[in-house]
């Protein structure tokens, strides 16, 4: 039988630092895509409430006790760090845990680093907000786990490129700041 080696998406790539900026991988949480069935919004809301969460409006996220739910598109959200079983019957649930690389960027100037890669003004982006946009040419889910910190989610297959582009932007920002 094949011996499979478990690796994280950014294994051997992260962490990296650049001045006061740091880039590290976030691992271990279960990720489930939640797409509500028609007419099930009320029951889904009740099931989420038991997890301390609520269905996110577009461009928002909410969290409680290590679990979070992030808006990711029309009638779709990602439940992160929680068991989705209690939502069964109210929404289509799809395990996405191994499909995404999650990368946390933080430190002074983090928004300026992302300004080089993301076509959205992220000054003032704060916990509770979520958005879908691009990181370079990669589709991205972006949240703010803490003030001044960003969590970037890209497809796992894009992990190396995402780390490369982010690290490059961090170095360029640091070099420019030193002038």
């Amino acid at each position: 039988m094949a011996r499979l080696i478990e690796k994280t998406p950014c294994e051997a790539l992260l962490p990296v630092t650049c001045g006061a900026l740091s880039l590290r991988e976030v691992v271990g949480d279960r990720i489930t895509s939640v797409a509500p069935f028609r007419g099930q919004a009320t029951k889904l809301a009740a099931a989420l409430k038991k997890l301390g969460l609520s269905w996110p409006e577009p461009n928002s996220a909410n969290a409680k006790n290590g679990a979070s739910i992030v808006w990711t598109g029309r009638d779709q959200a990602f439940l992160i760090g929680a068991d989705p079983d209690s939502l069964a019957g109210h929404a289509a649930l799809t395990d996405q845990s191994d499909g995404w690389a999650r990368i946390r960027l933080e430190g002074p100037g983090a928004a300026d680093v992302l300004a080089r890669l993301v076509p959205v003004d992220l000054r003032g982006f704060e916990p509770g907000q979520a958005l879908r946009s691009q990181l370079g040419h990669m589709m991205m889910v972006l949240t703010a786990p803490a003030p001044g910190a960003f969590e970037i989610m890209v497809f796992r297959s894009m992990a190396t490129t995402a780390v490369h582009e982010l690290h490059h932007a961090m170095k360029a920002f640091a070099a420019r700041s030193a002038v």
């Binding site: 577009p58 461009n59 029309r74 076509p119 959205v120 879908r132 946009s133 691009q134």
Partner: peptide, 11 residues
């Protein structure tokens, strides 16, 4: 209508 005003390159 969902995300707000965005650059044309996203579309």
């Amino acid at each position: 209508p969902l995300c707000g005003t965005r650059d044309r390159r996203e579309f």
